[in-house]
Design a protein around this nucleic acid. Structure first.
Length: 651
RNA sequence: GCCCCGAUAGCUCAGCUGGAUAGAGCAACUGACUUCUAAUCAGUAGGUCGCAGGUUCGAAUCCUGCUCGGGGUGCCA
């Protein structure tokens, strides 16, 4: 039991005598905001004023008089309007640290009631290159899975691949028309990638050519409309004038958007026109758009040839994305993509129909629900199924197979409404005893605050980003460690570069939008994983230099001593690791862990400056400090590992 | 139109679901490497928490209205 939950428990014993339901009040016990208030503070006395009818300070006094907490806290005081400030007992703290020192799990007990968590994350479309848009789901999902597992839950990670969509129609079409047999034999993954891009280009070209005139016309209309609106004189009626101003503003931004879109399409056309071969090829494949859809449709209706091609391509596509996952050191227990559920979709619709939950409307099969204006469509009027159908089938399968306590969907916030509907529908369907949570996160934006694109209108490829991260780390490592051998430097660069990238993402509150910047993603100083890795490496440096036998240090501990204030502060920080993990899992927020670790490392840095370990006044103090060092390093190591980030011994 | 999300230091963002004097990092400025790793540390400067009301002992946090931005909104995922 960690300090916070122990304190809450003790307060609970008292509060249950005073109020009916103490649970909200217990949530008001938290780490002290300022160390001058002690280590923890209870803010529950103030709101109890109305429940109990005494002054908050009287209530606080009453709580304290009944509280049995002497073994845990050396001081409990009322302050200000009725805060209860708690300071942990040094002996308790030391005993706790000693436990952690001897425990590979750092004193963190597995949860008492383990659940089964299915974590659905990453889920890229295979056969398309992965880009920055995939990074958040992948990293957040991985970090949450690792954390859930560490605290003792059963975790099933499942990569719900997009492996059944139009992109396969595209590469099937590409393969049938453009394949370079030799290249395909030599490097299938690369050739398939080339085919995808090629078909994409030609399709975009034709779409652009077809859409452009209409867009131009629309633009002209909008510009004319703008002139008209701007010609209006103020009427003097505030409401009308305001609306006019608003309309003009909207129209202007719409026009800008339109102009950008036109520019983008024109550049796509130009790319093809510039190259004679490409141009000729594009002209030859005028109907590529519908043809690709046909190839997709044939695949979905089990056409033998296309199905065979799909079966042939899929392993290559998986190999392709696996390369990225390997670099990120991410693994999945399952990769049950959309195709896996293909055969179950009709059954889903039948089942919903039978239960009277869905019905036909305008030719489509829809689930209508209270609270929603629009229905969830599970079968289109042309008979095809949608992702809602697949998602329902997936829920059904997961519940049958794993009987999970919770299914977590790590997916960006734009799909929020979809998941709300999905979960409601699933509950109506009978899956009402499983927690279903949309762990949503913000969009990756560019400098302009719009969804991120490069100047050419493409997204930033993930592979390029990883390479750049490792390369920047390599450069800095080389500068700082000229004496190190090549192999070590390569290892460090990988760990530091990839770690930095992951940390940059995970340290951000997942719900806010994400403004992409190379500087931020690849930063190697300040609040970064590098800082934590550096702290770890510094400890290892001390242990090396002091020729410390780590096994003895851990198995034969000496009593901890807090000679300076900072040592105690470090100690308090160390024992908070467990409660931090609890916090992370309340709302599935990995950034609470990065904040904790950064804080711990900062505290360690102060300790490092002020407490020479190897030159301590006496041997006992030296041992005590070495123990603090070891605990710090291990907490950082384990904490980072839960974020999917590695450490190195030297850097 | 309707529905969601957001607006905090020059920049990028935290802020633990209502607590005590609003915090980091970057950028800027001043200092610290013959010392256990300077990928670091100590310090300075930087704020009308979008605006206006309200709720109460107490509001960046909750409510209402407004402004601005993003997203979603019946057959894409």
């Amino acid at each position: 039991m960690n300090a916070l939950s122990e304190i809450k428990y003790r307060f609970g014993q008292v509060l249950k005598e005073m109020v009916e339901d103490a649970s909200d009040l217990l949530e008001m016990i938290r780490p002290a905001q300022d160390s001058k208030f002690g280590d923890y503070q209870a803010n529950c006395a103030m709101p109890m004023k109305n429940l109990v009818g005494k002054s908050p300070r009287q209530i606080a006094d009453e709580i304290i008089s009944k509280l049995q907490i002497d073994d845990l806290c050396q001081s409990v005081e009322v302050a200000g309007p009725g805060f209860i400030n708690l300071t942990l007992d040094d002996n308790w703290l030391k005993a706790k640290l000693t436990d952690s020192l001897q425990d590979p799990r750092l004193g963190i007990k597995p949860v008492q009631t383990p659940g089964t968590y299915v974590v659905d994350f990453s889920s890229p479309n295979v056969a398309k290159p992965m880009h920055v848009g995939h990074i958040r789901s992948t990293l957040i999902g991985d970090a949450l899975s690792r954390t859930l597992r560490f605290v003792g839950h059963e975790v099933v990670t499942d990569n719900h691949l997009g492996d059944w969509g139009t992109q396969f129609g595209m590469i099937i079409y590409g393969y049938k028309h453009f394949v370079d047999k030799e290249a395909y034999a030599n490097n299938s993954v690369e050739e398939l990638g080339r085919l995808y891009k090629l078909v994409r280009q030609i399709m975009d070209y034709h779409t652009a050519v077809a859409k452009l005139p209409a867009l131009h016309e629309q633009l002209t209309q909008q510009q004319n409309l703008l002139l008209e609106l701007e010609a209006n004189q103020p009427t003097g009626d505030k409401a009308i004038d305001k609306k006019l101003k608003k309309d003009i503003g909207r129209l202007k931004s719409k026009i800008t958007e339109q102009e950008e879109q036109i520019a983008e399409l024109e550049s796509k056309i130009e790319t093809i026109d510039r190259n004679q071969d490409q141009h000729a090829r594009a002209l030859k494949h005028k109907n590529i758009g519908t043809d690709v859809l046909n190839e997709t449709a044939k695949l979905h209706s089990d056409d033998t040839e296309n199905l065979a091609l799909w079966n042939e391509f899929l392993p290559f596509c998986r190999e392709d994305i696996k390369q990225i996952y390997d670099q990120l050191n991410i693994e999945f227990d399952y990769e049950l993509g959309e195709s896996f559920y293909h055969s179950r979709l009709a059954g889903v619709v039948d089942s919903l129909n039978e239960k009277g939950l869905s019905r036909e409307s305008e030719g489509a099969i829809c689930v209508f629900m209270d609270n929603y204006e629009t229905p969830m469509i599970i079968r289109k009027k042309d008979g095809a199924f949608l992702y809602a159908t697949t998602d329902l089938a997936t829920i059904q399968y997961r519940v049958e197979k794993w009987q999970p306590t919770a299914i977590l969907y790590v997916v960006d916030h734009r799909q929020h409404q979809h998941f709300e509907k999905l979960f409601d529908a699933a509950r109506l369907w009978g899956h009402d005893d499983v927690e279903m949570t949309h762990v949503s996160f913000g969009t990756v934006l560019g400098d302009d605050g719009r969804p991120f694109k490069t100047r050419s209108g493409d997204t930033v490829g993930l592979q390029g980003l990883l390479d750049e991260a490792v390369q920047r780390a390599a450069q800095l490592s080389g500068e700082l460690n000229s004496a190190m051998n090549e192999e070590t430097l390569t290892e460090i660069s990988k760990v530091v570069g990839i770690g930095g990238l992951k940390y940059a993402d995970l340290s951000q509150n997942r719900s806010s939008d994400y403004k992409f910047s190379y500087e931020k993603m690849l930063a190697l100083k300040g609040n970064t994983s590098t800082y934590l890795q550096y702290s770890y490496a510094r400890v290892q440096g001390i242990l090396r230099k002091g020729d410390v036998d780590i096994e003895t240090l851990r198995s034969q501990p000496v009593a901890f001593r807090f000679e300076k204030e900072i040592e105690r502060k470090l100690a308090v920080n160390l024992i908070r690791f467990g409660e931090t993990l609890d916090e992370v899992l309340v709302d599935y927020k990995p950034n609470l862990l990065t904040t904790y670790l950064f804080d711990l490392a900062q505290t360690f840095s102060v300790f490092f400056e002020n407490c020479p370990v190897l030159k301590s006044e006496d041997d006992h103090l030296k041992r005590s400090r070495l123990q603090l060092c070891d605990l710090t390093a291990r907490t950082i190591e384990v904490g980072l590992s839960l974020l999917g980030i590695d450490v190195v011994e030297k850097m």
